[in-house]
Amino acid sequence: MKWPAIGYARATSLDELWRLQAEHGAAAQLLAGGQTLLATLAFRLSDPKILLDITRIAALRGIAVQDGVLRIGALTRHAELGRDPLVAQHAPLLAEAAPLIAHPAIRNRGTIGGSLAYADPAAELPACVVALGATIVAVSPRGERRVPAEAFFTGLLQTALAPDEIIAAVEIPGTQPTTRSRIIEVARRSGDYAMAGLAARLSLNAEGRVTSPRLVFFGVGSGPVLAARAGAALDGWVLDSAAIAAAQAALAEDLDPPADMHGPPEMKRHLARVLTFRALSPLLRASEVAE
């Protein structure tokens, strides 16, 4: 399982990258953390002619908060997401997601930009950024472009990135004291891709009423699936058992999962309902829980 003969070039700035991309065109493949790309190369499943290493481009690094928006550079490693104080404060969902991604050695290399660009339907981070209502900052020789995360994932392993675009950063709107988020998944073993997972974010006001719920499932479709009808079943309602049941029921129309090695579509639907209950029930008021 040796990688096929291939070229390698390193870009240390965006300008250098644009030059290399212009030179090699479609034969070039970007290399960030490489944790997915290099595994697929081992199987000779893809055949790029040259890898363009972007890991030393400073402009793609860094985590900062500006005007209440958390900006996470594309080269931010999963391990950094898990331990960065700004992420923990402004996007705790991502900090919670990091330990679910593979294993420590993978998290030390894999990057958020790489994960989003690869768009594996069972991956955690694409679902998280959709749940958080994030914006993907794409950059190309033509300049910057901002794509809402919801519109970024366009199909199985497909994104809205143009061939000459790369992800520069992810921007995440600030959280409110009423914001609640949670990520849970069912995986065969720790670190495996999930059979089904749910990244959820919503607001709960003082009377327990839900606003702007976003339930985003992964491992159950061709990409992260924003369950619009389940969200609608919650929006504006007091979060109680009945509301959760309504959201679960609405999933029937939100999800059209494929079968995979682990089981049939019915299993994924079933697990999505279970996850919905498990994600939301900790938010129930004490009186509800006691029932």
Binding site: R188, G263, E266, M267
Partner: peptide, 13 residues
């Protein structure tokens, strides 16, 4: 004894 087989045995799917 996979989750799918156990869920099937339980008539959950």
């Amino acid at each position: 004894f996979t989750p799918a087989r156990i869920l099937r045995a339980l008539d959950a799917i």
